[in-house]
Design a protein around this nucleic acid. Sequence first.
DNA 1: CACAAGCGTTAGTATTGACTTACAGTTAGC
DNA 2: GCTAACTGTAAGTCAATACTAACGCTTGTG
Lengths: 103, 103
Amino acid sequence: MAYQAAFLALADPTRRRVFEELRRGPRSVGKIAARMPVSRPAVSQHLGVLKKAGLVADRAEGTRRVYCIDPNGLAAIRTWLDQFWDEALAAFQAELEKKDSHA
Amino acid sequence: MAYQAAFLALADPTRRRVFEELRRGPRSVGKIAARMPVSRPAVSQHLGVLKKAGLVADRAEGTRRVYCIDPNGLAAIRTWLDQFWDEALAAFQAELEKKDSHA
DNA sequence: CACAAGCGTTAGTATTGACTTACAGTTAGC
DNA sequence: GCTAACTGTAAGTCAATACTAACGCTTGTG
């Protein structure tokens, strides 16, 4: 049930942009906020949501806080996606067989 | 840029539950709403959002409207996920080499 | 032709949440 | 110790949205 938070976190465009910024590598909060159209506290809040969703991880580095990508969040989404796809495909084939037995 | 709508659509719990209900196979609006804690118009609106996101498709069947899963929406998310993962992995390895050249 | 079933749409409401400003806490340098 | 740099947090505001109730439209049935 972890994909719930992940989907909710990635739904917001600004927050996903923050997340995608970390795709280039680990960054501090200030570095990220400098490239964003919103204020630094807003970025900090977004990072908090992403962290709770298991999408990012943070480590203290002196006075600044460096964030990087946490694979767990994306893995949760991928798992959900694969499982969903398998079930849907199975249901689809079951539907076909039902119509075959009809003929 | 199609994953934007898909993520936004799957973020809402009720809407995702509607979507997951179609995993079992094609259903009419009434059938879905019967298993939901919200009213039928709410389900209809959710289905509209899912349709615009390319996650479901509908066909008229007499007086009732049957919805089924549209692979396009999920494919968009999968594409984004794969691409994101590749870039993040490349950045991670680049980070490692940078530290190697440091030694 | 009238009636009922099944949906989509609209208007209106209440709640969620993204954002800014101001403040408090922690760490490096003089 | 004192200042500056960097960040998380709290309170408040405003826009987005999920929901219900009421209505109108289309299709099958007597």
